[in-house]
């Protein structure tokens, strides 16, 4: 087996192991707590019957290990259980919402990724000059600003005062045509884009700068090559891996951003669903959502690693 295949297999196996451990962690996070879960869900005033019912429903009478494996096997079969509060099938409820969330994240990524790479290149091109300084100032500001501030500012000025786009995503219907849908979620997409843009831009800048400062770029310059040729032939092949890495890490960051943005704009996605059921203490829903968010996050990180391995010439052309 060539070393690269071996490494990839190892990395993917590690990702799966991580996912398994995370599922334990998420499950354990909801049980290994002092006191009675049923009590803490229903509060002090709960009647004994209600407590007993809830315990039975949660399977609290069984040992935790058995409960965990029951849950896990369910997950493998696409059965995420039923919601305590509504009695709905969780998988069905999540199915629709996951689609909505991915729609939002997809469009945010489509806009943010090329824009961030372009601006990152711009910052490298005009290093230490005003475009670069402006970009780093904006970055400093944006890592200090909570997502909901960006959300409400856009909602307040663009949505309410200017009325260009609907201020909330209440009008969003998954079955509407694309333009209507996009117009309904224009503001949430804008917020998500802004949230990841700064990070992605700054990290792209650092990654490309790192490549541009290496000795082989100097060699290329001293060959009298044109700037374009240098970038295309010498900088680009070595920048792919770090830039893809940056993109993936930030898309993972988007997973968190989406939770807040969905709440701000009342968007019917996974984030809103999760937050809603945390306050209702609907544990099966929270576990299912937590697992899905974690899986997406781990998956994106895994892709980043795989791309780095594939792009490494030392691994691609072993001695």
């Amino acid at each position: 087996m060539s070393p690269i295949v071996k490494l990839l297999a190892q990395r993917i196996a590690l990702g799966l192991l991580l996912l398994f451990l995370v599922s334990i962690l998420i499950f354990a996070g909801t049980i290994v707590l002092p006191g009675d879960v049923a009590q803490s869900i229903l509060g002090q005033s709960a009647t004994p019957e209600a407590l007993a019912n809830l315990r039975a429903e949660l399977g609290l009478d069984e040992p935790p290990v058995a409960r965990y494996f029951n849950w896990l096997f369910g997950v493998f079969q696409g059965d995420l259980g039923t919601a305590l509060t509504s009695g709905q099938d969780i998988a069905t409820a999540i199915g629709k919402r996951l689609g909505n969330t991915l729609f939002l994240a997809f469009w945010a990524a489509i806009i943010a990724v090329p824009l961030a790479i372009f601006l990152g290149l711009l910052a490298v091109r005009y290093r230490e000059r005003w475009p670069d300084k402006l970009i780093s100032a904006v970055t400093l500001a944006s890592i200090s600003v909570p997502e909901f501030l960006i959300g409400y500012i856009l909602m307040f000025f663009i949505g309410v005062k200017l009325g260009w786009f609907p201020p909330t995503a209440i009008s969003y219907r998954p079955d509407a045509d694309l333009l209507t849908k996009l117009s309904a979620v224009a503001l949430p997409i804008a917020v998500l884009t802004l949230v990841v843009l700064a990070h992605m831009m700054r990290m792209t800048r650092a990654a490309i700068l790192n490549v541009m400062q290496s000795a082989y770029i100097e060699t290329a310059e001293l060959k009298g090559l044109r700037m374009f040729t240098i970038i295309w032939r010498h900088a680009f092949p070595n920048s792919v891996a770090p830039v893809v890495n940056v993109v993936m890490l930030n898309l993972a960051y988007l997973v968190v951003g989406v939770v807040v943005v969905e709440v701000v704009f009342v968007y019917p996605g996974m984030g809103g669903y999760l937050v809603d059921h945390v306050s209702k203490r609907d544990i099966p829903v929270v576990q299912a959502c937590g697992l899905i968010f974690a899986a997406v996050y781990i998956g994106l990180n895994l892709i980043a690693d795989v791309v780095s391995i594939l792009a490494n010439p030392r691994l691609r052309h072993p001695k």
């Binding site: 995370v22 869900i41 939770v259 999760l274 945390v278 203490r281 937590g290 996050y297 781990i298 990180n301």
Partner: peptide, 21 residues
């Protein structure tokens, strides 16, 4: 630590807060 950091902290916090007071 790697394990804890493989989940976004907001998500993990939400999971825990669903059962804690």
């Amino acid at each position: 630590v790697d394990l804890i950091m493989s989940i976004p902290s907001l998500i993990l916090a939400l999971v825990i807060l669903s059962v804690t007071p």
